[in-house]
């Protein structure tokens, strides 16, 4: 589904990603862990097409398409979803209106008819239950006045509504208490299908207690320096990131 090859990216002239390789197949959940400043969030931003990050080398293939050639909204319409670490507030724009626009844009792109109001509302009701999001929040402006936990749940709610092929969860666990974490993870797990995949970016292991990854990768200094099964996360939790540094000889 996704194949990242020798990806280099910089921000304001400073190289952050230094030759990153990663392959994600349908049905898989990949966790990317690493110390602060390793480039985790940069990877998420580059995948989504944030223009603040300049790709200087490498390629990203997404379902047979050159992802880097696509606009941000085209990537989304192709089925890439980024759950933001810091979801943006958009005053005056209701969640409902926002989502309906997003869904219909995607449907138009796919050559489908716009969703009917009835189907849309049914979908909202169903999916909001998934993340235990108060239906009142759906009528409020996008993320405005939401608590940290509500914002993150809203991200997962949007993910559920947009039914992406590949979801990238950027530090979705940060700032969440244990209940919110459980709800978010439940949402993610229930959305897991054979033909979808997820990349879970996190600093801590605890999210992986709830979202069990097939693979764990350690991102350090702009590269994946170690990959392994889910047990690798536990090892990291126990030994810390210094252990990795030693192991790779730095």
């Amino acid at each position: 589904m996704l194949k990242i090859n020798n990806l280099h990216a910089q921000v304001e002239g400073k190289e952050i990603l230094k030759g990153l390789n990663l392959e994600v197949k349908a049905g898989e959940v990949h966790a990317i862990m690493g110390p602060n400043g390793a480039g985790k969030s940069t990877l998420a931003s580059v995948l989504a097409g944030n223009e603040d990050f300049e790709v200087t080398d490498g390629s990203v293939d997404f379902e047979g398409k050159d992802l880097l050639e696509l606009e941000t909204d085209e990537r989304a319409k192709e089925g890439l979803f980024l759950a933001f670490q810091y979801p943006v507030e958009i005053p005056g724009v209701s969640n409902i209106n926002f989502l309906k626009t997003a869904i219909n844009e995607k449907r138009e792109y796919q050559g489908k008819e716009a969703i009917s109001a009835k189907d849309f509302m049914a979908m909202v009701r169903e999916k909001s239950k998934l993340v235990e999001l108060d239906s009142k929040l759906a009528n409020r402006s996008v993320n405005v006045g939401f608590s940290g936990g509500e914002k993150k749940r809203n991200e997962i709610f949007q993910m559920a509504m947009l039914e992406p092929k590949l979801s990238v969860l950027d530090e979705t666990d940060s700032g969440l208490d244990i209940d919110a974490l459980r709800i978010v993870a439940k949402g993610v797990n229930e959305l897991k299908k054979e033909d979808t995949a997820s990349i879970v970016i996190t600093h801590y292991q605890r999210l992986l207690d709830y979202i069990v990854p097939d693979y764990v990768h350690v991102l350090y200094d702009g590269k994946i320096v170690k990959s392994g099964p889910k047990e690798l996360a536990l090892e990291l939790e126990e030994k810390g990131y210094d252990w990795i540094k030693e192991e790779i000889g730095q």
Partner: peptide, 19 residues
């Protein structure tokens, strides 16, 4: 944020300004 949700720039601006 809108672009990432698949909403093109014209529409995104329309949404934000109307909001």
């Amino acid at each position: 944020y809108c672009l990432q949700r698949g909403i093109d720039e014209e529409k995104a601006i329309g949404l934000i300004v109307n909001g």
